[in-house]
Design a protein around this nucleic acid. Sequence first.
DNA 1: TGTACATCAGTGAACGCGCGTTCACTGATGTAC
DNA 2: TGTACATCAGTGAACGCGCGTTCACTGATGTAC
Lengths: 215, 215
Amino acid sequence: MKEDEKTMTKPATNESGQALKKSGYHHGDLRAGLIEATRRLVEDKGPDGFSVSDACRLAGVSTAAPYKHFKDKNEMLVAMVLEGMQRHRANMLSALEGIPKGTPARVTAIGSEYVNFARRENGVFRLKFGGFTDRLEDDRLQAAGEETFGIVLREVAACLGETEITPEVRRRGFMLWSFVHGLSFLLVDKKLADMGGETELESLLSDIAERVLVD
Amino acid sequence: MKEDEKTMTKPATNESGQALKKSGYHHGDLRAGLIEATRRLVEDKGPDGFSVSDACRLAGVSTAAPYKHFKDKNEMLVAMVLEGMQRHRANMLSALEGIPKGTPARVTAIGSEYVNFARRENGVFRLKFGGFTDRLEDDRLQAAGEETFGIVLREVAACLGETEITPEVRRRGFMLWSFVHGLSFLLVDKKLADMGGETELESLLSDIAERVLVD
DNA sequence: TGTACATCAGTGAACGCGCGTTCACTGATGTAC
DNA sequence: TGTACATCAGTGAACGCGCGTTCACTGATGTAC
């Protein structure tokens, strides 16, 4: 196969070893490749360090190629954030596995995963919440966010012994969300330099859960 | 004075009526004028919608002028954010006036002002906290932030009956900060569409203060 | 009070750059016969 | 199985644009005499 030779002379055959590109001419799944490139760039250079040109370079593709898959730059970012939110949601759900229903420990587990996502996928997190929202404004993002918040509300309701989402459940859920959301930002901005490590974080989360969920 | 005629033909004599420019040739206080222009642009177009060229246009000055007062674009943003943080701090302090020492009401008042700042000066708030930190990284900003946090810690200590900033005071203060910080973001991102108005906000803040400050 | 002069805050033109997007195109691929 | 063909995912060159920053300059201002 001279495919490989060709690939080696291409400018952007991916620096980190993981393959973003499949074959010589047709890509295989360029849409996914570009989303992954977008994600990487946002993680590496920050939410505003992303450019279409960079993504193309990383995916090893001409700068015109994305427009076969996305309307414009904004669509690329939205698609990437949506994917990230699905991951986030899935992680939160799997963090619940094995923890008894109706216990504050479930709420703590969700919070812990929320914070971890904010750290692990800092760029995506900031892109969604850091004030780029105006640019990204999109019903799909809004909907995905509410769906995720629903997971929290369900657990809060269970803890409070409610069978449906009452206004009080919303209120408590919102308190918890606010706390965990702010905590994520402060951790990621490193405002918590002297606040200890992982144990301290877990204790903070369960402490808050208890304080908010106690009637 | 033909000064006025000249000014009228200038392209950027300020759209909103408020004077950013003083005289025909020398400006008077261009540094302040540019900081104000920067602030306006960041508020109007978002943290990443700011450009030096725009600021010059708004201040009615050539694009080379800022470099007599600031090292580069970043310095302009830092200067503007620093000014904003001083306002923020002053507002928090004056929100305390007349409220009895050692009461949770003082903590609530600070929180309320924090949230209001995030809404009133949304652009500045996001610029400081929304993930532009990497670009803005600056010791002066860090120091200003810690000074502001000190106000909270002092009040928390008073509420807990401590005379100094113990680890537990820091812990509680940090919980409160996280909550109020997250609340600010969620309000500003309009994730609280169904969460009621000002009264609800105040009740949320005092509720949290009580829950966190009760031993 | 009037004049000569140094200062330095502003000018305006220019620079090189990377960006987002478009265009006519090409050639790999899958399908119908 | 082999061939003709339509499709359409990619190319690569080009576009116009606004950006941040620099440069030699100019002329208003304050100060010394």
